[in-house]
C-alpha cells in the first residue's frame, strides 16, 4: 500500500465523510482550552458544540439529498 493510500485510509477512519464536524470539534477544543486557561467555566463548550455540529451535519445531509434531484433536473433542462 502506498503512503498516499495509507494516509487516505487514516483520514477516512478518523474524519469520515464529514470534515466540517471534525473541524468543528478541533475549534471547540481550542475554545475550551482557551477558556480553561483564562480560569473561566469551559465545560459547557463541548456539549453545546456536539449538539450543534450534529444538527448542522444532519441539515447539510438533508439539503444535499434534496438538492440532488433538483440539480439533476435543472441539468437535464439545460441540455
Amino acid at each position: 500500500m502506498s503512503i498516499r493510500r495509507a494516509l487516505a485510509a487514516i483520514y477516512e477512519f478518523v474524519v469520515g465523510d464529514d470534515p466540517f464536524s471534525a473541524l468543528g470539534v478541533v475549534v471547540a477544543l481550542g475554545l475550551t482550552a482557551a477558556l480553561a486557561a483564562a480560569k473561566a467555566s469551559a465545560w459547557p463548550v463541548l456539549p453545546l458544540a456536539v449538539v450543534l455540529l450534529l444538527a448542522l451535519s444532519l441539515r447539510r445531509e438533508r439539503l444535499r439529498r434534496r438538492s440532488g434531484p433538483a440539480r439533476a433536473a435543472a441539468l437535464r433542462r439545460e441540455s
Partner: peptide, 12 residues
Amino acid sequence: SFWSAQGAGARW
C-alpha cells in the same frame, strides 16, 4: 467530550 474537555483543562 468528557475526556477531551478534561485534557484541555476544563473541570466538569
